[in-house]
Amino acid sequence: MQRVNMIMAESPGLITICLLGYLLSAECTVFLDHENANKILNRPKRYNSGKLEEFVQGNLERECMEEKCSFEEAREVFENTERTTEFWKQYVDGDQCESNPCLNGGSCKDDINSYECWCPFGFEGKNCELDVTCNIKNGRCEQFCKNSADNKVVCSCTEGYRLAENQKSCEPAVPFPCGRVSVSQTSKLTRAETVFPDVDYVNSTEAETILDNITQSTQSFNDFTRVVGGEDAKPGQFPWQVVLNGKVDAFCGGSIVNEKWIVTAAHCVETGVKITVVAGEHNIEETEHTEQKRNVIRIIPHHNYNAAINKYNHDIALLELDEPLVLNSYVTPICIADKEYTNIFLKFGSGYVSGWGRVFHKGRSALVLQYLRVPLVDRATCLRSTKFTIYNNMFCAGFHEGGRDSCQGDSGGPHVTEVEGTSFLTGIISWGEECAMKGKYGIYTKVSRYVNWIKEKTKLT
């Protein structure tokens, strides 16, 4: 034993070699072989497995989906700052455009905790909710729209109204504003409101030439003092309507412009014939205590009207009353817009006519005020429907199939267009061939041609 100890002390290297040989010859039971080890760690190889990531292109799944990435790591994937920024906006807080917040056709661009709407022409605001041009839906104005110097929408209202708090709607500024039905039992019968379409306001006024200088022999019209197929109006439903009495009662109609003036057809009036105007009328054979009678003290036909040349060209006249009318729910003026808007309103496509005229061709006159909704007829169809001249200051309205029309005794009465609950004068009943005849239409004086003249002559002093 002493000898062994001496050998170990003198030859430590020998001992180490012996131990190493023993270990190498022993069977290893701690580690699995290569094949079995792979069965336990069965993990798919990654895209760049075996390579240094710093030297390969980034992978979106590896960089940002398996674990949260930084902007720089995302930049490695896209290799483009702009594309990385677009991805980053949604990656950080989701897609803010998912709810489609942009209105009126706006395009949404996502941002971090926010979004941006790219608005089409005519709109602005956070969600493109603000109209900035009158060309689109009248700028959301209830009545009139004008573009300011910086191309912003400025709404306005006709006389007797003021802008509401929203700067879009119009509200009454006087007790009985024009064009409004205020009798409670008839307010439910107000005709369907007309909503502004998209309009090209630059070209809204037709490029028409008034044929002022045409000389033409007097034409022989049949029954051209021209509501057939209409309905009984309720008291106060058309408070701007008046009836004219002269040699015979209810020979023509008219509309209240203001307390002192009536507008009617020029062919209705004769110099030297006494005319009485009755406002607030409903049943011409009954006294309903809503009527107001006034005498006409002055007749002003349009300066281009000449019955000797043509009885229905420039067929418009103004009547001055001896005493002002007292405005109330049964006696209310009709609204008159400017030339541009009167023309736009007419193009809405349908209007209402009213009167006490004959209820059928050569038949009896109506006792109760009649009204009828009539569609506008395109000019080409209008011209083809008659052998008589249709001037540019006239328009056609009615039904091709016949059966409904204005008729004798309705002449001078109103053709009105309702705009968001307020009625505007767009025409004056003038003439036609018979009444409600198939293929024939009622012919009306186009008020847009005469609004400046009306307003100039009827100013209240």
Rank of each mutant, 00 (worst) to 15 (best):
T287S: 13
E171S: 07
M65N: 07
T342Q: 03
C268L: 01
N127S: 11
Y91A: 05
E159Y: 08
I210W: 14
I316N: 00
F78R: 02
V183G: 11
S329C: 05
N127P: 03
H302C: 02
D322E: 12
L14F: 14
V183E: 11
E171M: 10
R140H: 10
C97R: 03
S411Q: 15
A307H: 08
Y47Q: 04
A307M: 11
G349N: 07
E116Q: 13
N203F: 06
I316A: 02
F176Q: 06
V273N: 13
T29M: 13
P235A: 10
R384M: 11
L32F: 08
L325V: 03
F144V: 02
G58Q: 04
N100H: 13
L130K: 12
G254W: 00
I136S: 14
V199P: 13
K168E: 07
A307S: 12
T342N: 03
V183M: 10
A149I: 13
N48K: 01
V92F: 09
P239N: 02
L376H: 06
T290P: 05
L327K: 04
G125C: 02
D200C: 05
A233R: 05
T85K: 06
F87T: 02
N59A: 05
C18W: 11
I443Q: 04
C178G: 01
N258E: 02
F224Y: 15
R140W: 12
Q370R: 13
I300L: 10
L20P: 02
A26Q: 02
C119L: 01
P324W: 03
K168L: 11
A266Y: 03
E159N: 08
P333R: 03
N393K: 03
A250M: 07
K146C: 06
Q90A: 12
W261G: 00
S204A: 06
E286L: 13
K39T: 09
C396K: 02
V353H: 04
D249C: 03
S411F: 15
P301G: 05
K274L: 06
L372S: 15
M8K: 13
V269I: 12
R449D: 15
D131C: 10
A308I: 07
A266N: 02
V296P: 03
T342V: 03
S148K: 09
V377F: 03
C145M: 03
I256Q: 00
K311H: 06
E171W: 07
N42Y: 11
G94Y: 08
V174H: 07
S385C: 08
T276A: 07
E418N: 11
T133H: 12
G236D: 04
L425K: 00
G403M: 14
I334C: 02
F224Q: 06
A149H: 10
G280N: 02
W88Y: 09
L325R: 00
V248W: 09
I344K: 13
Y305V: 02
P235G: 06
A308F: 09
L244Q: 01
A26I: 13
N5I: 14
N48Q: 02
D212G: 11
M65I: 14
T426A: 00
H289C: 09
N100I: 07
A397M: 02
R404S: 15
V227I: 12
F87M: 04
P333M: 02
M8C: 14
I210L: 14
S220F: 09
T84H: 05
V30E: 08
H400F: 09
S49L: 05
G125E: 03
R3E: 09
N147Q: 15
L318P: 00
I275K: 01
E35G: 13
H289E: 14
P414Y: 07
E433H: 13
E142L: 06
T190S: 13
T158W: 03
L20A: 07
V416G: 05
F196N: 15
I7Q: 14
C108E: 01
R404A: 10
Y341H: 06
D378Q: 07
E53F: 00
Y330I: 04
E72G: 06
A380E: 14
V202C: 06
C335Q: 01
Q57V: 01
V359H: 14
T194Q: 13
L103Y: 12
V377I: 13
N393V: 03
S70K: 05
E281S: 11
K387H: 15
K457M: 15
K362V: 05
C119H: 02
E76L: 01
E418L: 10
F176G: 02
L376C: 02
V199M: 13
K188M: 14
I210E: 15
N258V: 02
V374H: 02
R298C: 03
A149K: 13
L425N: 02
N147H: 13
T209W: 09
D249G: 12
V77R: 02
F55E: 09
S25C: 14
L244S: 00
N80E: 07
D322C: 03
N213P: 10
I284M: 09
E82K: 05
T426S: 03
D410H: 15
T215D: 06
G355K: 09
N203P: 08
P44F: 07
M65E: 06
N203T: 14
V30Y: 14
H400S: 14
P172N: 06
M394Q: 13
G229R: 13
G349V: 02
Q57C: 00
